[in-house]
């Protein structure tokens, strides 16, 4: 994580099942194909609505790639890793 070139933020609402599924899928992604390349953070919009506002989040779950630019987002529970990586424009 020290050489974290990849910054990801996952926005979820509370502890609903869809959000928790997305959290699990993100963890798998980061410990799997993206091992050591990514730094991720989980934001519950109920606890940190200001973060949702700052990032202009509409839907949850939303995974945001904040770095490197450009800003790319995926909405959904992140169950298909290949589609997620393609949408975020991340090469593995």
């Amino acid at each position: 994580m020290s050489n974290g070139q990849l910054q990801l933020v996952l926005f979820i609402t509370g502890d609903g099942t869809r959000g928790q599924r997305a959290v699990g899928n993100l963890r798998n992604l980061c410990s799997g194909v993206l091992s050591d390349r990514c730094h991720y953070e989980i934001v519950d919009v109920l606890e940190q609505p200001d973060r949702a506002e700052a990032s202009r989040i509409m839907a949850t779950p939303t995974l945001v790639k904040t770095s490197p630019v450009p800003d790319r987002r995926v909405i959904g529970d992140l169950s298909n890793a290949d589609d997620v990586l393609a949408a975020l424009e991340i090469d593995v």
Binding site: F11, T13, R18, A52, A59, R73, V74
Partner: peptide, 24 residues
Amino acid sequence: DPEISSVVLGEYDLGGLMARVGYA
């Protein structure tokens, strides 16, 4: 926002919007 590109892959809710509305 033209700078932001989002792809919908699966189920979602508008929890982000609701949290922002409540916050405002």
